[in-house]
Design a protein around this nucleic acid. Structure first.
Lengths: 160, 160
DNA sequence: TATTGTTATACTCTATAACTATA
DNA sequence: TATAGTTATAGAGTATAACAATA
């Protein structure tokens, strides 16, 4: 129903972008907006948010990880992580524990409910964008992933 | 898939991401954070903001473009565009004009000052990330750009 | 009735600094 | 003195809906 049929003034393609379409920041933003649109269209009704699920997923893989390390790894600011974790805790998805060896720290792990949440949503989360009809071929998608991984330092080459 | 699961508090690279590193949304976010860090480190002191400059740049290329079309093309919400343009107007960078043919609309163009601003910052803006030492080779960068352009519908193939 | 742009409100994510309790 | 996490505050950016003027 969302027919982007445009009115009067201009058909859509008469806005020149010039070198902007060769700007990495711009392209990443455009791509991200598109991915997020798809994401919410697809999984919005489930109450699944991308950043949120990413954190739960990493907790699933790394039970007992410290909060600061989690934040650092996911490039989420510590102050923001505090809020997210408190929210998860209130929803009964995550448990916090202060280890004896360093009583400043907080270790995180999923509750049973948290594990269930991850289990129930993982497949939808990880497959949603490949279920989308894409402008890219499968080979191009693979290539894009490899390049992005390498760019952000997650490539097979090496870690941070 | 980096396994290395060790529950210890410790060293930095022991947070497993699993399939998350194969999630397009996640990779785009990580890449964008990185690009923005670079951007502000490099151009922050100039008072240059990426979204802001993009709008001014497109106005430079498309004098007289309508506000709504600009927003649509750059995937900026109309309500937000209103604020940006008002800000630009107050800084003397942009002029607004109501065309006779459709008095609901607003046509935008840069002032002399706006043109000067774009002229003064364009090179720094468009070259800053290629001046960065990157994990990617030049060929890989080119490839990444082509794939992102195609993904968001800006490729040489065709427009929207 | 539909549209263009505006206003108002709220929520997310981010940035920063001051604070506590530990180390 | 430094570190881990918290709190408080502010600022972008975004989403949404109601609204006025115009079509």
């Amino acid at each position: 129903m969302t027919r982007t049929v445009d009115t009067a003034q201009g058909s859509e393609s008469d806005v020149a972008l010039g070198e902007l379409s060769g700007s990495l920041g711009f392209l990443l933003r455009m791509a991200q907006v598109q991915v997020f649109d798809f994401f919410f269209e697809d999984l919005g009704q489930v109450g699944l948010r991308p950043g949120e699920f990413s954190v739960l997923w990493v907790l699933h893989l790394n039970p007992g990880v410290r909060q600061g390390l989690l934040a650092q790894r996911l490039r989420i600011k510590r102050a923001h992580m505090t809020k997210m974790i408190r929210d998860f805790e209130q929803r009964g998805l995550v448990e916090r524990r202060t280890p004896e060896q360093d009583r400043r720290a907080v270790e995180l792990r999923l509750t049973g409910e948290g594990e269930a949440f991850v289990r129930d949503h993982a497949e939808a989360f990880f497959t949603h964008d490949s279920r989308r009809p894409s402008t890219l071929t499968e080979a191009e998608r693979t290539q894009l992933f490899a390049l992005l991984q390498k760019y952000v330092g997650l490539g097979p080459e090496g870690e941070g």
